[in-house]
């Protein structure tokens, strides 16, 4: 019986699954459809030709053109400004939320609080976008305040759950004994946080911040609805250009964005591996 079971287990084990022709084929198909378009985009951003379908020669001219384009530069600056500010705010808020939900003891409504923080991840972004738009126009009218602050606020809010996830994961893996030991050695609650909890939490905070930064940098839907005039971010600019057809310039900008995102995600990955 056990022999039979072990045979069964071996035949369905992951090792064998990998050799199933159908499974392997599907995986390749998915990978090709996922990465081939990106590869094409990257390749043609280096094409010395206005066409985005016919390759002629390697050139960096579209990068030069993109960097000299005032609209691109302006929208890139806005993107970075919004993403950086939103990242800082959302990471601070997420860190405090993670501390409250893992170090505040067991209190009524803790599970509800965690669900409430994570729930925005499940709500379709278009719904959040429309709700934010409606709510913000009321606020704008009531307060009379205008400016890029509203866009930053919107980004901060939707970045919080992304920043929260890795920070909370790190905190709940971290033994409370370290904090107890710090308190035992005469550290006030603030000193214990500053010298023990925060340094140990740092990889989680960095991972959370990078996720938030990437999410903010890439956002289209909410930005599209909330951004006021003169607050065009890079993705919105690209979207506008695309309506008039894909240009190599757009390819170049997109490639820079991809490079940035990949760098961030890789860094996050290594930060999270380092703590193991």
């Amino acid at each position: 019986m056990t022999k039979f079971l072990s045979l069964f287990r071996r035949s369905t084990g992951s090792r064998e699954l990998r050799r199933q022709p159908l499974f392997t084929g599907m995986s390749w198909l998915v990978l090709v459809f996922l990465y081939a378009p990106i590869a094409v985009l990257v390749v043609f951003s280096f094409n010395d030709n206005r066409s985005v379908v016919r390759w002629t020669e390697f050139s960096l001219r579209w990068y030069a053109a993109a960097l000299e384009n005032d609209d691109i530069r302006r929208s890139a600056m806005i993107s970075i400004q919004v993403a950086l500010t939103a990242t800082i705010f959302s990471t601070v808020i997420a860190t405090m939320a993670a501390l409250a939900t893992t170090r505040g003891g067991v209190y009524r409504g803790r599970a509800a609080a965690i669900a409430l923080i994570n729930q925005p991840l499940m709500i379709p972004e278009i719904v959040t976008a429309i709700a934010t738009l409606a709510f913000f126009s009321i606020l704008r009218q009531l307060t009379g305040v205008t400016g890029i602050g509203w866009l930053i606020l919107a980004h901060t809010v939707f970045c919080v759950p992304f920043a929260y996830m890795p920070i909370r994961a790190r905190l709940s893996d971290m033994s409370v004994t370290y904090e107890a030991a710090a308190a035992d050695l005469y550290a006030s609650p603030w000193q214990a946080f500053r010298h023990v909890t925060l340094p140990l939490l740092m990889p989680g905070v960095m991972a959370g911040a990078m996720l938030a930064f990437v999410v903010s940098l890439d956002d289209v839907i909410i930005t599209l609805l909330v951004a006021g005039p003169g607050e065009t971010t890079l993705p919105i600019y690209i979207l506008g250009q695309i309506r008039r057809g894909v240009t190599p310039e757009v390819n170049a900008v997109s490639t820079i964005l991809i490079g940035l995102t990949v760098a961030m995600v890789t860094l996050t990955f290594f930060l999270q591996r380092k703590q193991k």
Binding site: T177, A183, D184, Y186, A187, S188, A192
Partner: peptide
């Protein structure tokens, strides 16, 4: 009193040395 205000120190079973 809170632990940080007592002239008492502990050797924890898991040691709890600060890894950083």
């Amino acid at each position: 009193l809170a632990p940080n205000n007592r002239p008492v120190n502990t050797v924890f079973q898991s040691y709890a040395l600060f890894p950083h």
